[in-house]
Design a binder for these strands. Structure first.
Lengths: 216, 216
DNA sequence: TGCCGGTTTCAATCAGCTTTGACTTTTTCC
DNA sequence: GGAAAAAGTCAAAGCTGATTGAAACCGGCA
């Protein structure tokens, strides 16, 4: 679709004409309204009417920018994907250069994962399990994110002089624990115990980092 | 509702009359069809028509047993809750009495968590986030399960002579890792790396068990 | 400067489809 | 015979996407 070229404009809304600029702003507004709907109503309860309402637009006006619902979803996936990637790239290096990057990065990811953005992404992922069309949109984005996350981590954590297998375990473990906690917290609040798990994870990650220094 | 007394009959269909027995069987059939729908179609795409189809019943016939959709959902939550509880009670002690209960229990839970039953429960949990009515049905079941899980574990793992805080960390950590892995696997297949995380978790659990033997 | 034609943006309505729950009828079993 | 179970029918409500029409805006031209 021609849409794929336009999604670049959302990230970088430097476009020529007056109208094109306003149009891009409206598109962004619609996309963010859609994401709000995913969070507040859930993916399956998100109707075009609800998105239009939240955007302060009429339904018809919205359907001018995005001819159908699936087009909005596509744009929203692109948008979220871009935001998550940038969040990772920004968070990892920012977390100081000192020895305690373990803790600060854990906390950064733990923060990210409780952000509405993650909830929206999560809604999409769950819905995609039984929605082939959505899955086909989401899968490439998901895979790209995984690759990028892994690549960035390997690149940034230069103080981890361990072999690849150990590094992978540390990465996967962190991710599973934190995402598992995030999902549990979607329903049950039990903050006290989560802190202890996080502390333990931090300790074990340090251990992994300093254990066997095989790689140069 | 009078339904709450009937849910007991699903687990123990020893009821008097001929018809009552057949009725109970039909109810179970409907409930299991509903759960199949949750797994195959997702919660929000589950319609009464789809449930009736899968059960091989007409819609009207089904609506005789369950006057409305929410009644089916209620019964399904009860059913799943009961099944999960019994699965825990059965799996934990069965896993041999030897020293290697750590591994066998991890694997048991890892197996459970990829069972369709877990997928169905997961669908319900996610849907409940934005569906107050469902949340009110699910929350008590969820809390009861958590309590029971914790209690059973403390009761059964007598070889864990550690203090409560350590035990909780071990329990929570296991749960988060395994559930996080399960959810990741709902979308991305990456079995090789999961095995390594599981191995690592096993190792750390043994370490926790044998670390500080405070409790008698 | 001021007007005009054409394009872009917004609004409203409509028909088609699906789902739901109520109602009515037929069949089965005691 | 009569009650329970199953089947079929129906209207109401909600969602989607298409169509039609109005308003705003841009560029060009006298």
């Amino acid at each position: 679709m021609a849409k794929s070229t336009e999604t670049a404009e959302e990230r970088d809304p430097v476009v020529s004409g007056w109208q094109a600029q306003k149009s891009a702003a409206t598109r962004k507004l619609i996309i963010e309204s859609a994401i709000k709907c995913f969070v507040e109503l859930g993916y399956s309860n998100t109707t075009t009417t609800a998105i239009a309402e939240r955007a302060g637009l009429s339904r018809g006006a919205m359907l001018h920018h995005f001819p159908s619902k699936i087009d909005i979803v596509k744009a929203a996936v692109d948008y979220l994907h871009g935001k998550r990637l940038r969040a990772v790239r920004r968070a990892v290096p920012r977390a100081g250069g000192g020895e305690d990057r373990v803790r600060s990065n854990l906390e950064a990811y733990w923060r990210d994962v409780r952000h509405p953005m993650f909830v929206a992404f999560f809604e999409l992922v769950v819905a995609a399990r039984t929605d082939r069309e959505l899955a086909e949109i989401l899968q490439p984005a998901q895979e790209a994110f995984d690759r990028e996350w892994h690549r960035t981590a390997r690149e940034v954590f230069t103080e981890w002089k361990v072999d690849d297998a150990t590094f992978d375990v540390a990465l996967d473990l962190s991710r599973y624990v934190i995402e598992g906690m995030a999902i549990s917290n979607l329903m049950n609040r039990q903050d006290g115990r989560d802190e202890k798990v996080l502390d333990y994870l931090e300790d074990k990650l340090r251990e992994l980092r300093d254990s066997k220094e095989k790689r140069s």
